[in-house]
């Protein structure tokens, strides 16, 4: 059983220029990827290679132009009709999503489309809620019964060491604590998949390493699948079971590495360094022919 199944996905952005001509670029071009349950997958690649777009398609924040994404066997977003589809199909799609965004879950009832949680570089914890309310809110959206919500939130916050900052607002927290809150919120809902978009990029290196260790400890013995977009090669090597290297223009999968390093891993072990070097040279090659607009 695959947690995530990406079937030949393409994402094309069309842009209408100032002189009324249309142009566009392909962010992701026919990518197929199968991710097994319980694995940690890292997506690496040069800037602008469509990693984030790819992750957003996994999370249902963007609809693919072609192809389809399945999380836990369920289609994430309906693919909009392409240029080739009939007028009737186009009209039907337009009518269906006339008053509600295709990204919306539903109008009235809280009901997740599929069982994922997302983490972003800039945390995306709600600044108008306290630490405790943030976690409670996420659980409420998952329709967790009221009594259980509090217990689960407290339990998870205790696990990440935020149990003495329950009534604080995110503005009062440090970057590392905010990211811990985001982690606690994502884990509290017990999702099948967690999608992380450069989650540890905005914190300093010591905090980052501690957060990485904590992440590994927290998801140990669960079957949560993690997809991690990162720029940090050593982070990818330290955390993941598999690394997918993207190449840019158009974004395609360049190479896949399966890391058979035993856990618990050590940083800077000879095996890890070897992998890092291989990936580094591959990425260097990838960025070289891109010219000046990369990086």
């Amino acid at each position: 059983m695959y947690a995530i199944n990406v079937d030949n996905v393409t994402k094309f952005f069309s842009v209408i220029n100032e002189d009324k001509t249309a142009s566009g670029f392909t962010a992701v071009s026919s990518v197929s990827l199968k991710i097994e349950t319980g694995k940690i997958i890292s997506l690496l690649g040069p800037s602008g290679c469509g990693k984030t777009t790819f992750l957003e398609m996994l999370g249902g924040l963007q609809a693919p132009t072609e192809g389809s994404v399945y999380v836990d066997g369920k289609l994430v977003l309906e693919t909009p009709p392409s240029i080739d589809s009939t007028k009737k199909e186009k009209r039907a799609y337009k009518r269906k999503y006339r008053f509600i965004s295709p990204l919306a879950n539903s109008m009235w009832r809280n009901r997740p489309k599929h069982d994922i949680a997302m983490m972003f570089q800039d945390y995306a914890v709600f600044p108008w809620m306290t630490v405790f309310q943030n976690v409670i809110f996420a659980l409420k959206l998952r329709n967790v019964p009221k009594r259980e919500r509090r217990e689960r939130a407290l339990h998870q916050l205790k696990k990440v060491g935020l149990d003495n900052a329950l009534s604080k607002y995110p503005a009062q927290l440090s970057g590392g604590m905010k990211q811990r809150l985001a982690l606690a919120r994502a884990l509290a809902v017990q999702p099948k998949v967690i999608l992380m978009d450069e989650p540890f990029a905005a914190v300093d290196i010591l905090t980052r390493e501690r957060l990485q260790d904590e992440l590994l400890k927290l998801i140990d013995e669960t079957d949560i699948t993690i997809v991690l977009v990162t720029h940090d090669i050593s982070e990818a090597v330290y955390l993941s079971d598999e690394i997918v290297v993207f190449s840019a223009n158009p974004g395609t999968i360049r190479n896949k590495f399966t890391l058979d390093i035993k856990r618990p891993r050590r940083r800077n072990s000879s095996e890890a360094l070897e992998y890092e070097e291989r990936i580094q040279s591959l990425l260097k090659y990838e960025t070289k022919h891109l010219g000046d607009y990369a990086i």
Partner: peptide, 27 residues
């Protein structure tokens, strides 16, 4: 409203009504 907040609320399963009440209006 910051699209990141909308994205994370939606990924947890927020309905549009909840989104208006708990994300759009507070922000």
């Amino acid at each position: 409203t910051e699209p990141r907040y909308l994205a994370s609320a939606r990924s947890f399963g927020a309905s549009e009504f909840t989104l208006i009440l708990r994300v759009y209006i507070p922000s």
